[in-house]
Write a protein that binds this DNA or RNA. Structure first.
Length: 595
RNA sequence: GGUUCCGUAGCUCAGUUGGAUAGAGCAACAGCCUUCUAAGCUGUGGGUCGCGCGUUCGAGUCGCGCCGGAAUCACCA
């Protein structure tokens, strides 16, 4: 509609003022609620062509449109704003189209689909997932859905940091203190099990440091000479040299962790098409660095470590291989990027990684371009903010880490409590109820996180916990469940939707508000895709739910005597439920039919 | 100190490419369940959009300078 209207306005300016105007001067927007009309033209930019007052210019354009464009049924001018009214007939036709189509995303398709890799999650294998990872996973998965919905070919990928000294710490502690205990024998989830030994290591290590310091060593010396850290380093060297015993242990403990992660991923409803392991990509990375060294893109220091000089790009020098020849984080990421490009020849890779690594990705891109990988322009750091507690960052030392599994369980429990307190779902089986509680609990968690602008740091208050009232996931789910209930009832009463009746109705103004909002869905999805912003969709779903709830209270739907009007309202309900379902689907949030 | 990001109601957050009187929720108070699900709806109170200058018909939005906060600047990942 906007596009046609814009063209007509351009035509009007051409005829009335004999001027060709560019698109950006035709500023068309939705009319604010307090004014009469559907679309508003801002006439200020056009004054230089009309050489007239804003009011008169608006009037002239309005009159022209009424005369030559039947969809416009009326207009009014307030200051420099021309409010145009679109005829009921046009609304109705649009609306019928919307309710008839199965695929609500068909109008969001991009002109040039791309191959996009979304890298997200990226866990270390020595600790269970926490709240920060939840934000990461939800954002990554939602980006996948949004971009796919708009026609891109999206590959979900995960890079597992399965290599390094931190893994060796857990391994060593298990060897020393584990006493043959396994996740199976202890009944502890694998990732938590391994994490337990990582904590054990840190505790014993700390005790050794303190003892050494009592004997007069400086803290730095004590850190580097404690027996445990020496053993861990030795283990890492053994691992790198392929020592069978160490590698087998490493494989076993990693497999425990992976089975634990799988459980968490499954609860969150996320998955991956392709998993990369740093234990593999660091080798590729090393090769790349060595060949770039030969081409004199990099330089070797006196101690034989290898560096990149990025000072001409406004960045620092960056280490790429240690003096002992081992790889660092950047080396691995180089290798991973190249391996992925060979696998998929992507247009873009979206790295869903916290904003603490902004510098790292700046360096990665500059470095790769310096090395001649032109496609490195497509490496995009989707930088999201930290999840903080009211008193600041989560700190493992202070035990303020919010564990992912604990939080998910808590959300489910709260959903159960709230539901039982309200006396709902009494006629459902235990199994069905649990499934609904899961959907609601996770809906609350996911929405809570996704509604916030990804770039911003956000605050999570574990004491107040996540609400189920107001601007929340359950509110949107509730709206959906209620619409479903209306249709169940309609079915019992033998009321069916009749598309033929639609065309005869003159909708009331309140209902038009709902239609306007529904109409925006396509634009919102497109905008969310181009701006990588799930939050846009989340907030839209809330606005729509709120609007529908008002509608629900203001009007009788099934009780309406006028069959035509009833049919129309049922239609509005139908489309609302479909839009809500699709919108929340893009966020990875499930919708219960009842709650 | 350099770089990047953030500052909107008591709290948590929205606010389209600059547009009309800056919006929700939570918290507080007052109403609404014989009526399609009250996880809801209606109303009241709450703001120098961190501060200042600039750009223009118009700035929460763009530019510059301050103030405040965060992240980062490792032979950690």
């Amino acid at each position: 509609m906007e596009i046609v209207l814009k063209d007509k306005i351009k035509e009007a300016v051409k005829v009335l003022y004999n001027s060709d105007v560019t698109d950006n001067l035709i500023q068309l927007q939705e009319t604010r609620k307090d004014f009469k009309g559907d679309f508003t033209l801002v006439v200020f930019p056009l004054l230089r062509f009309s050489k007239n007052t804003p009011e008169q210019t608006g009037k002239n354009i309005g009159n022209y449109l009424i005369k030559y464009f039947p969809a416009v049924s009326g207009f009014n001018v307030i200051k420099g704003f021309l409010n145009l009214e679109i005829s009921d007939r046009w609304w109705i036709e649009y609306f019928a189209e919307m309710s008839s189509g199965k695929n609500l995303f068909r109008n969001c398709q991009v002109a040039n689909p791309e191959v996009i890799l979304v890298e997200y999650s990226s866990p270390n294998t020595n600790k269970p997932l926490h709240l920060g990872h939840i934000r990461n996973n939800l954002l990554g998965y939602s980006l996948y859905r949004i971009l796919s919905a708009c026609g891109h070919k999206v590959i979900k990928t995960n890079i597992v940091n399965d290599r390094g000294i931190h893994i060796c710490k857990s391994m060593l502690a298990w060897q020393k203190y584990g006493d043959g205990e396994t996740p199976q024998s202890s009944g502890i989830k694998g990732d938590h099990f391994v994490g337990k030994y990582y904590v054990k290591f840190e505790k014993e290590y700390k005790a050794q440091i303190e003892e050494l310091m009592l004997n007069g060593q400086s803290e730095i010396d004590a850190r580097n000479s404690a027996p445990l850290i020496l053993e861990a380093r030795e283990m890492l060297l053994k691992w790198e040299s392929g020592d069978k015993e160490v590698v087998d242990l490493w494989k076993m403990m990693n497999s425990w962790v992976y089975s634990g992660f799988d459980g968490t991923y499954k609860m969150l409803g996320v998955d991956f098409d392709r998993i990369y392991y740093e234990s593999e990509t660091y080798i590729t990375g090393k090769k790349i660095v060595l060949s770039a060294l030969k081409e004199n893109i990099l330089f070797r220091n006196n101690d034989s470590s290898i560096w990149a000089d990025l000072s001409s790009e406004g960045l620092d020098q960056k280490l790429l291989l240690r003096s002992d020849g081992t790889a660092v984080y950047m080396t691995q990421d180089l290798g991973t990027a190249v391996a992925r490009f060979e696998d998929y020849s992507f247009n873009k890779t979206l790295y869903v990684v916290g904003n603490e690594q902004n510098y790292h990705f700046q360096v990665l891109r500059s470095l790769m371009k310096k090395m001649g990988y032109n496609w490195a322009d497509g490496l995009i750091h989707f930088s999201y903010g930290m999840v903080e507690l009211p008193e600041g960052r989560m700190k493992s030392r202070e035990g303020t880490i919010v564990d992912a599994d604990d939080l998910i369980k808590e959300m489910k429990d709260t959903a159960r409590e709230v539901s039982l307190e309200l006396g709902k779902l009494t006629d459902y089986s235990e199994e069905e109820k649990e499934d609904i509680f899961r959907k609601i609990g996770l809906g609350a968690l996911k929405y809570f996180i996704l509604k916030v602008d990804p770039r911003k740091n956000m605050i999570f208050n574990p004491v107040e916990s996540i609400d189920f009232n107001g601007n929340t996931g359950p509110f949107i789910q509730y709206t959906f469940a209620r619409i479903k209930s209306v249709f169940r009832k309609a079915d019992q009463m033998g009321i069916n939707l009749d598309p033929a009746v639609i065309a005869n109705v003159r909708p009331g103004i309140k209902e038009i508000d709902l239609v306007k909002l529904l109409r925006k869905f396509t634009d919102i999805v497109s905008e969310a895709a181009s701006g990588y912003s799930p939050a846009l969709i989340a907030n839209y779903c809330y606005d729509l739910s709120k609007e529908y709830n008002q509608f629900y209270h203001d009007f009788s739907i099934l009780g309406e005597e006028d069959k035509v009007l009833r049919n129309f309202r049922l239609y509005l309900s139908k489309v609302t439920s479909e839009v809500l379902f699709s919108g929340m689907w893009l966020l990875g949030i499930e919708m219960p039919e009842r709650m």
